[in-house]
């Protein structure tokens, strides 16, 4: 990561994409898409989070493979948290 000093042009491009996605997500929320409102909002948020991680946080350019392992396992355990909680609540008639 130290070897690659990214061009400022790349950072500005990422910034513009993030701004456009923010406007798009705020606008599309006012359009009735039925159950897809939730999916679209979360998909756009995930897209924004992904480009922040890859470019602003330099994950795309790091030579340390363990960094990616740490991120993927953290997300995996977060999904385990959600999945097991939902399996529990969903089968106990608590919801």
């Amino acid at each position: 990561m130290s070897e690659h000093i990214l061009s400022s042009k790349l950072y500005y491009t990422i910034w513009i994409i993030l701004m456009v996605l923010t406007v798009v997500t705020a606008w599309i929320a006012t359009v009735d898409l039925g159950p897809f409102n939730t999916i679209v909002a979360l998909a756009i948020a995930t897209g924004k989070a992904l480009i922040v991680t890859l470019f602003f946080m330099h994950v795309k350019y790091t030579s340390e493979k363990l960094t990616k392992t740490v991120i993927v396992s953290a997300l995996f355990f977060f999904l385990v948290l959600l999945a097991l909680s939902m399996a529990d609540y969903g089968t106990r008639h608590l919801m």
């Binding site: 997500t25 705020a26 929320a29 006012t30 359009v31 009735d32 898409l33 409102n37 939730t38 909002a41 979360l42 756009i44 948020a45």
Partner: peptide, 11 residues
Amino acid sequence: FPLLYLIDRKP
């Protein structure tokens, strides 16, 4: 932002 502000904006 989407979870708190956006998800339930439709009428």
